[in-house]
Design a protein around this nucleic acid. Sequence first.
DNA 1: TTGTAGGCGTTATCAT
DNA 2: ATGATAACGCCTACAA
Lengths: 337, 337
Amino acid sequence: MGQRKTTLADIAAKTGYGTNTVSLALRGSTRISQAARDLIRSAAAEMDYVPNQIAQSLVLNRSNTIGLILHEITNPVLTSVAHMVQKTLGKHGYSVLFASSNGDPEEELRAIAAFRSRMVDGLLIYPIDHSKLDHLKALRRNHFPTVLLIHTEAEDIDAVGINERQGAFDATRHLIERGHRRIGTLGPAFTASIGNVGKLQGYRQAIEKAGLPYDPELVATPFDHSIEAGVRAIEQLMAVKNRPTAVFATSDLTALAALRWAAKTGTKIPDELAIVGFDDTDYVAHASTPISSIHNDVEQLATAAVERLLYLIDNKETLPPAISKPTPGALIVRESS
Amino acid sequence: MGQRKTTLADIAAKTGYGTNTVSLALRGSTRISQAARDLIRSAAAEMDYVPNQIAQSLVLNRSNTIGLILHEITNPVLTSVAHMVQKTLGKHGYSVLFASSNGDPEEELRAIAAFRSRMVDGLLIYPIDHSKLDHLKALRRNHFPTVLLIHTEAEDIDAVGINERQGAFDATRHLIERGHRRIGTLGPAFTASIGNVGKLQGYRQAIEKAGLPYDPELVATPFDHSIEAGVRAIEQLMAVKNRPTAVFATSDLTALAALRWAAKTGTKIPDELAIVGFDDTDYVAHASTPISSIHNDVEQLATAAVERLLYLIDNKETLPPAISKPTPGALIVRESS
DNA sequence: TTGTAGGCGTTATCAT
DNA sequence: ATGATAACGCCTACAA
C-alpha cells in the first residue's frame, strides 16, 4: 500500500489550479489571490502535504542540511558540542548529517565526500590532525562554508574552538606556581593523538618558560580512552626515578585514573601528588577528591561556531576573510592541587 | 569562482558519449564496451566527478540516509549507540541524519517530519515516551522502516533495545538477595522521565515479588542529570524515617552521587548502604568503591538494530512482522553491594 | 491572477 | 554498444 506521498501536482489536480500556483500559494506569495491561497492551503493540510526537500535541494542548490564530523563521539565535550550544534541549527531549519571519523584520516575524507555529494550547505568539523588542514582549506577556497571546531593559528580557515595549548599552559603553570618542579603529564590517548599536540605543547611551554627542564620521561600516553589505560600510564609515570610531584592530565578521564592510582597506592592528594584535569566534567568536580580542571563553555562554543557557519553560508560568494575565535577556558581550582 | 561541480553531462561532453552511456559506464555496466568504460572512468577521475546523491535520491526514491533520533545525547549509553550506529551504517554506504528531541514530544515530531521530507530510508529512534508509540506505529503501517532503540511489549512495532525493566528487576532482586529489606531507588531525572517508567516498574516488581511493601517514600527523583541533583535526591531519600539500607540507582551518574553522599557523611559502603547502578560505565567500575551495575552490550544492540533496519528497508513492500529483541543485560557485582 | 516551459542531475525505458 | 526521451518533485522565468 505504502501510500505515495502527496505532491504539488496532487494538490493542483484536486484544486484545479496549476502546480506552480499551488507552489506559490503554499509559500504565501501575494501574487496568488487570497481565496486561492486559502483553498490551496487547506487542501494541502488535508492531504497531509510535506514539501520534498530533496527536490527542493536539487533546484535551489541548497539542502538546508549541514555536516558535522567529529573524530570521536565518546568524548563528553564533543558530545555536548554535537548536542548544542544540532539544537541551534534545528532552530534555523537545518538538519544535521553526522559522522565520526574514528581517528582515521581516510574516514574523514570519505565523510566529507559523502556529505558533499549530499549537497550539505556547510561543514562543522573537529579534524583528526590539527596540523594537516590542507584538505579543509581547499574546501574554503572553493567557497564551501567550513568551520573548524578547534583553535588554530592557521590564517586561511575559519576556526571556533577551545585553545587547548593555552589551557594546558595554564594548567601546568598553575602547578608550577604551587611550587612543583617536577611535573608529569598524561597525554591524550594514542587513538586521538595524530597531529593534535596542542595540549602537550602548552605543557612543555609552561615548563620551559619557568626555566624547568623538559623531560620526555615525564610524558606518558595511555593506549586508549579507558580509565584502565590511564591507570597503566600513570603507573608508568610514577615509576621513573625522581618521580613527579604533580601531573597534568590532558583529559578528565585520565585525571580520574590518576586519582584511582593514588587511592590504590595510598598516595596523598594533593600533598604527595597534585592533579589537574581538562574539560571540567561532572565526574571530576565530584570525585572523591574534587579535581582541578580547565573549564570550557561548550554551549558558547557551539553557538559561536554555528553562527559563523551560517554567516559563511549567507556570504559564500564573497568568501569573507577567515576568522579564528578561541573560546576562553578557565582553570577551576579544587582540592587536587 | 565556486567552480561548479562536474556532472555526467560534463563528462559526456568531454568524451563525446551521451550522458546515460556515461552513467552506465561509471556504474560498471557490461552493456558498455570495455574501451568506453575505461575512457569515461579516467575522464571522470580527472574531472573529479562525484555523483550527486540528491539527484539520485529523487529518481531512485531512496536517499541512502537514515535518521537517528535520541531524546538526549549526553547520556553516555546513547552516545555509544549513536557512535556504533553511524559506524555500522557507514559501512553499508548510509549517512546518518541526527536529531535530539530534548525530551520534547513536539521536537520529536518535528524531527521525524524533517527527516521524512529529506527522504530518509528509515528511522532509528529512542522515543521520549515509551508508552505513547502511536505515531511510530503509524510510520510502520505506512511501510516506513522504523526501529525503536528500546525494549517494549508492544507487538506492532520493531524494537531492539535494553530491557530496562528486567535490568532494574535484576538489580533490585540482587539487593534483596543480599538481605536488604528496605531498598530505595534514585529514579531517572525528571527531564527523562516522561513515560519511561521501565526501571521503576522493574524495581517495584522485584520488591513486591519478594513480599516486601512498596513505599513511595523510597523513590527519589533527581531534577536533572547532574551529580548535584543526584546528591540532592539521595539526601532526601536518606532523610526518611527508617532509612533504606540499599539503593538502586537507575543511572550510573546517580550511583556516583550516592557514593559521593556516602563519602561526605561517612557512611560505609556497602555495610551501611549498598548501591547498584545502571549502564556499567567506566566511571563506576573505577570509582573509589567500585559500584555494581547492570552492563549492556551497546555494540551488539546497535548492530542488531541497524541490521533489523536494513532488513526492513530491503523488504518494505512486504512489511515483515514486527519483532521485539531485548538485548541481554548482565549484573556486574562489585564492592558496593 | 494564473498557466506554460524549462531545468536541477540522475536513472530507466526504449530505440537504434 | 550507444543514444534519445521521459521521469523524479520542485522552482524560476516568462507568457497569457
